[in-house]
């Protein structure tokens, strides 16, 4: 139910949403997506993946060899990457938003500088709304709480809605049922 509501709301603001029951299926789809979008090792074509629990137990070296995926997030790397991948802990069903503790700057770099942001979300992290998020996330322990709703947008020129100003122009959200999560 909450997933359906989230999906409708998020797609309403131009996010792309899909869901898988296992990490493995999600990874297969993600790699296929990157290939389809022509990932490469070169700047403006590569992908950068920020530290997260999804990566626990993954063989990063193989991933790097096979696809050119990189895991060391720096300002320079992020500003040159076409894809940024991160895990967002929560999703808000009533607004189609994602939320995360972004205190580690790497989390913000991969979700704001690249052209496409891919967000992995544990399905159990879907919450009904903002009050339920705020009651779970104490700002004193989460110095930078980031919420993301759809891709970057502006209507500053003649009020015409245009996607992708300073942030990503695409937001791809992948729900994973067996990713655990904080709920």
């Amino acid at each position: 139910m909450m997933y359906e509501q989230f999906k409708t709301r998020a797609e309403g603001v131009s996010a792309e949403v899909c869901r898988f029951s296992t990490k493995n299926e999600a990874l297969v789809w993600l790699l296929e997506f990157l290939r389809r979008e022509r990932i490469a090792g070169a700047p403006q074509a590569n992908a950068l993946w920020a530290e997260c629990s999804f990566l626990d137990g993954m063989d990063r070296d193989t991933l790097n060899e096979q696809t050119g995926l990189k895991f060391e997030v720096t300002r320079e790397a992020a500003s040159q990457a076409r894809f940024g991948i991160s895990q967002m802990e929560w999703a808000l069903a009533d607004t189609g938003s994602l939320a995360q503790n972004s205190t580690a700057i790497e989390q913000r770099l991969v979700s704001s500088l690249p052209t496409i942001h891919i967000a992995l979300v544990p399905t159990s992290g879907i919450l009904p709304d903002m009050p339920s998020l705020l009651s779970r996330v104490n700002p004193k322990e989460n110095a930078y709480i980031a919420m993301i709703t759809g891709p970057s947008r502006t209507a500053d020129i003649e009020r015409v809605l245009t996607i992708g100003v300073h942030g990503p122009e695409r937001l791809v959200i992948i729900f994973v049922d067996d990713l655990g999560g904080k709920n």
Binding site: R9, T74, D94, I105
Partner: peptide, 19 residues
Amino acid sequence: TAQLLTSYVSIITGPTPNS
């Protein structure tokens, strides 16, 4: 802007690490 939520909301509580 007749949006349910703006694209980005940040709640910042004290300094965070630089890169």
